[in-house]
C-alpha cells in the first residue's frame, strides 16, 4: 500500500512539475532495469550485480525485469518504448546494433540515449586439448585448402565472431549452431566439432583444467588473465570482436536524469566489490561515459555493417 501511495505521489509530482523539477527530484521512487535476456545468463548476472552496487549511489532500489524474446529484441524494444522519465532503464547489448540491420528488430540504437558502457568481453578461440590444430594459422590453412571442412561450434546464428574471421581471411567454416557457450564447448570437448569462439569467462575453467586449449583472443591486447594467449592481430589476422553490455534510456529522457544515472553507475563500476565480482565472473570491465559509449556504438556499427551486408 505504502509503495503504491508513493507511486501515486510520484505520478502527481511528475505531472505537476516541469522536466527540471522532475530531474531535480530524481529518483523519487524505485527504478526498473529491463534485461533483454533470461534470468541466470551472463547479461543477467552483470545486470543484477550492477543494480546491486548502483542502488546506494541513487538512493532508490533497482529491480531487474527480465524480458526475453527475439534474441534480445523484445526487451530492448520495450526499453526504447518505455516512458522517458528515467524510471525504466535498459541493459543493452551488441544485438542493438546487429538485430535492426538483420531486419529482426524495429528500433535501433537511435531510439536510445546511452548512459554508460560497463563491460566488453573479447572473443576467445578454443580447441580440444589434443586437437591437431596448434595455432590459429592451422585452422585458417585447413579451411583455405578445403572450404567448409572445419567444423565450428557456433553459439549463435549468425555468429559475428566467425563471420569476421571468414570475411577477413576469405574462408568458410562448417558452422554448426549450438544453444549457447555451454553446449558448444561441450561439443568441442567431446570431439564432435573442432573449435568454438566464446567469451573467455565461459571457458575459463576448462582452459585451466586443460580440457580446452585457447588459440587466440580477438582483442586489441592480450588478456591479463591469459597472458600466454596471443591476439589475432599478433598472428597476422586483423580481426577484433567481442560482446559488450551497457545501460541506455529512451531518447527523450532529460539530460539531467541521464547525468545522474551516468555518475551513479560510474561510481558502481569503480566500486571495489563490483570489480571483484566482475573479475570472479570473468567479465571484463570497460567503463565508458555516455559520450564515449555513443561513439563506441557508432564504430561497432561500422565494423559489423560489411559482415551483415554479405549475409
Amino acid at each position: 500500500m505504502k509503495k503504491s501511495l508513493k507511486a501515486i505521489a510520484g505520478v502527481v509530482a511528475l505531472s505537476l512539475g516541469s522536466s527540471l523539477a522532475m530531474a531535480a527530484d530524481y529518483p523519487a521512487r524505485n527504478i526498473r532495469m529491463i534485461v533483454p535476456f533470461g534470468a541466470g545468463g551472463g547479461t543477467d548476472s552483470v545486470a543484477r550485480a550492477l543494480a546491486e552496487y548502483t542502488e546506494p549511489h541513487l538512493g532508490q532500489p533497482i529491480a531487474i525485469m527480465n524480458r526475453t524474446g527475439g534474441a534480445g529484441a523484445v526487451g530492448m524494444t520495450a526499453g526504447a518504448n518505455s516512458r522517458a522519465d528515467g524510471y525504466t532503464i535498459t541493459m543493452i547489448t551488441r544485438e542493438i546494433v546487429s538485430l535492426p540491420k538483420l531486419g529482426l528488430m524495429q528500433v535501433d540504437s537511435e531510439a536510445f540515449k546511452m548512459v554508460r558502457l560497463v563491460n566488453f568481453d573479447p572473443a576467445l578461440v578454443t580447441v580440444k586439448a589434443d586437437s591437431p590444430y596448434k595455432t590459429m594459422g592451422d585452422i585458417i590453412e585447413k579451411a583455405k585448402a578445403n572450404p567448409g571442412s572445419v567444423k565450428f561450434a557456433s553459439t549463435a546464428k549468425p555468429n559475428f565472431y566467425a563471420l569476421a574471421i571468414e570475411r577477413n581471411q576469405d574462408v568458410t567454416f562448417n558452422q554448426i549452431p549450438f544453444n549457447g557457450a555451454a553446449e558448444a564447448s561441450t561439443a568441442v570437448m567431446g570431439g564432435h566439432v573442432e573449435f568454438t569462439i566464446t567469451g573467455p569467462g565461459e571457458v575459463k575453467s576448462q582452459v585451466e583444467s586443460g580440457q580446452l586449449r585457447p588459440l587466440a583472443v580477438m582483442a586489441e591486447k592480450r588478456l591479463a588473465s591469459m597472458p600466454e594467449v596471443p591476439t589475432m592481430k599478433e598472428l597476422g589476422f586483423d580481426v577484433v570482436s567481442g560482446t559488450w553490455r551497457g545501460i541506455a534510456v529512451p531518447k527523450k529522457t532529460p539530460d539531467e536524469i541521464v547525468a545522474k544515472l551516468e555518475s551513479a553507475i560510474g561510481k558502481a563500476v569503480a566500486d571495489k566489490d563490483f570489480v571483484a565480482f566482475m573479475e570472479k565472473g570473468n567479465f571484463f570491465i570497460e567503463d565508458k561515459s555516455a559520450a564515449e559509449f555513443t561513439k563506441f556504438i557508432g564504430e561497432d556499427t561500422k565494423s559489423l555493417m560489411p559482415i551483415i551486408e554479405k549475409l
Binding site: S4, A7, I8, V11, R32, A63, M65, R83
Partner: peptide, 12 residues
Amino acid sequence: FMVFLPAGSLFQ
C-alpha cells in the same frame, strides 16, 4: 517473488 504486476495505465 518480485514480479512486476501491471500497475494500470490509467493511474500512471
